[in-house]
Design a binder for these strands. Sequence first.
DNA 1: GTTATTATCGGCATAATGCAGATATTACAG
DNA 2: CTGTAATATCTGCATTATGCCGATAATAAC
Lengths: 180, 180
Amino acid sequence: MTGETAPVAARDEADPVAVIEVQAAVLTRNFELLRRRSGFDSQLDRAGYLLLLALDSLGPSDIGTLAAALGLDPSTVGRQVAAAEGKGLVTRNPDPQDRRRSVVTASPDGLARMAELSVARQRRTTKMLAGWSVEDLAQLARMFTRYNEEVAHHYFTGIDQVGCAAPHDQPKHSTAEDDS
Amino acid sequence: MTGETAPVAARDEADPVAVIEVQAAVLTRNFELLRRRSGFDSQLDRAGYLLLLALDSLGPSDIGTLAAALGLDPSTVGRQVAAAEGKGLVTRNPDPQDRRRSVVTASPDGLARMAELSVARQRRTTKMLAGWSVEDLAQLARMFTRYNEEVAHHYFTGIDQVGCAAPHDQPKHSTAEDDS
DNA sequence: GTTATTATCGGCATAATGCAGATATTACAG
DNA sequence: CTGTAATATCTGCATTATGCCGATAATAAC
């Protein structure tokens, strides 16, 4: 029948760009599936994790700043902050200088949970990539970072890439030096 | 003040695994933002694109097979198929052998739209990575693919990784002989 | 002091999904 | 052949996350 061979979308394995495009989409889809299938942590969900990560990187911030950093609507971030506050992950105090703002601060408990989750995720990644050589791991890390830098540069110039290019630690020199 | 000092989640740049974990999360988040900010195609949305991709790879299939391939609930895929059918992207015929099943087939128009979108995405990727050397592109493609293979192997052993790792395997398009 | 701007919040609508129940069809045991 | 179990799909309901718009409170500008 028709579906036998030769898919129409010629995913040319010889064209690296085609492979990259498809694999990036696959990676995104896989992460979405993982997120739906097993909530990693009931106490610190994905939104909370990213929120804490942003607060950890930016320091105490108002909701507008957080929304800009996360690329979300202020109302959405406001709800996320409210939820995190209910769980004791962050605290919210009115800014003395400008009492319209509420300054959101990561609580020690929130930071601890975030670090804990970060360690757990790294442990999973370590186990998943156990068979890789150190050189391959370093290469993947470089490639991922460079790729995300390009995405940010081309599509998110206005957004602080929290967790991508932290303010103080510029991922050094992603020069195209490495081969093999 | 906390923003200047070392963040708690020590993103050790010397540890490739830590970088990989963070960058994978960043990539996923970036893609979600892009998806929300600009609907690429009103006629062929993301779900439709993935559905067509699966049909292109598997050949005509019933909803259950598609749901397994996509890692989604059959009811969800049923709705996606209904939407795609309404747009003329797929056709649905009752299976003569088993009239409980409806065999979904990609229409020529659907395949054309899918290929068109695929080309457009590749063109965007090409432009985004214009400054990269051919060797770096090949390296990124390899790293992406290997990484996704590991994810699939560790977390999606039961799911057909459509569009992920199906270079030379025959698409078994047969009408679901899996009634064991 | 009045008006414009800003930050946040709350209501409403939207999109995508999973689960449970209903229905139709097939398979199997007697 | 009949009755029961299993299967595929569909429909209704609930959930989650989000964006937009308007309201409210506070600040800034004139």
